[in-house]
């Protein structure tokens, strides 16, 4: 093991995303899963002449999946999505089964974008994307409170504009 630095873990980033994100994710999941289940149902009840057992199985799976997506996944997402911006770096963590942690020094940040979809606007949420000179290095923070997102973007822009150079 690494004896030079006894450092087993990164802590979680300090902040959670806005709690309204649960509502937002539930809504979007409801829309997409609704479309999916409706489509499958039409095929199942209208198009298919006989109700084969495997068709029934697919439909049941889809419905169960939809319920999980709508009721459970948004809460898990909210629990695992965390972020933090310090003076020198931005740090995020996401994923439940497959966990991903991303760190980018602010000195290497090239652009700070924020975006807000129509449904996000209803929930007063916004997402931030921070890119570096590496295509693999973009960091997203989804579903912040929109005022907070604005503040973070302003801060980041201010901090990163202090560093000159081309950040490569």
């Amino acid at each position: 093991m690494s004896t030079t630095t006894g450092d087993p873990a990164l802590r979680d980033p300090a902040r959670k995303v806005s709690s309204r994100a649960i509502g937002y994710w539930t809504t979007t999941a409801l829309i997409w899963e609704g479309i999916l289940v409706a489509g499958l149902s039409v095929v199942y009840f209208v198009v298919l002449p006989e109700r084969w057992w495997w068709a029934t199985a697919i439909l049941v799976l889809a419905v169960v999946g939809a319920i999980v997506e709508v009721l459970i996944v948004p809460r898990f997402k909210y629990a695992v999505h965390r972020w933090e911006v310090t003076d020198s770096a931005i740090y995020t963590r996401s994923g439940w089964l497959n966990v991903e942690q991303r760190i980018a020094p602010l000195s290497r940040v090239q652009t700070v974008d924020s975006e807000q979809g129509a449904i996000q606007r209803m929930f007063r949420l916004a997402s931030i994307t921070v890119t570096t000179a590496s295509a693999a290095g973009a960091i997203e923070i989804n579903c912040l409170d929109q005022d907070e997102a604005r503040r973070v973007v302003a801060d980041l822009t201010e901090i990163t504009s202090r560093d000159e150079g081309d950040a490569t």
Partner: peptide, 24 residues
């Protein structure tokens, strides 16, 4: 995992150190 973090720390100490678990 510990090696991964040690590696990142040695390359960018100031950046990575602030996100280490407390009390370690």
């Amino acid at each position: 995992l510990p090696w991964a973090l040690a590696l990142a720390r040695q390359v960018n100490p100031t950046v990575v150190d602030q996100f280490r678990s407390a009390g370690e």
